[in-house]
Simulated scan of single mutants.
Amino acid sequence: MNVSRPFLIGLLEAGTIHYRMVGKHRRITAEALMEYKRRDDRERRAAAEDLSALGQELGL
């Protein structure tokens, strides 16, 4: 994922990515990671489109 461990743990604890505990260790399924990546990509794309539309509206 190329993110820091504290950032990932924050996502897990916030419930953004589903995981389960095995002893003291967090286990994340590949499907949960891929779903997060797809959702994040969609949100980023929507934000970029909004910024582009705002730029065109302002004539930039």
Rank of each mutant, 00 (worst) to 15 (best):
R38F: 00
R5K: 02
R39V: 05
A46E: 12
H25W: 15
A48P: 12
V22S: 03
R26L: 03
M1Q: 03
L11K: 02
D41A: 10
V22K: 10
D40L: 10
A46T: 08
L58I: 04
M34H: 14
A53F: 10
L33H: 08
G15P: 00
V22M: 10
S4G: 15
L60D: 13
R38K: 02
E13A: 13
M21I: 05
R5T: 03
H25G: 10
Y36C: 08
S4I: 07
L58G: 06
R39W: 07
L51G: 10
L51F: 12
P6E: 14
T16N: 03
H18A: 11
V3G: 02
G59D: 14
A14D: 07
D41C: 02
E13N: 12
Y19W: 02
G10K: 00
L51V: 07
R38T: 12
L60P: 06
T16L: 02
H25P: 03
S4F: 06
T29K: 07
K37P: 04
K24T: 03
H18N: 08
P6C: 12
D50Y: 06
L51R: 15
H18C: 15
G59S: 10
Q56W: 14
R5I: 04
M34G: 06
F7D: 05
L33V: 14
K24P: 00
V3H: 04
A32W: 01
D50F: 00
L12H: 14
E49C: 12
L33N: 00
T16F: 05
R39K: 06
D50P: 05
D50R: 06
L51A: 04
L11Y: 08
G10H: 02
G59C: 12
A48C: 00
N2H: 13
A30T: 06
T29D: 07
R26V: 05
R20N: 04
G55M: 02
K37E: 06
N2T: 09
H25R: 15
M1N: 02
S4K: 11
L54P: 02
H25D: 08
R20P: 01
A32Y: 05
A47D: 15
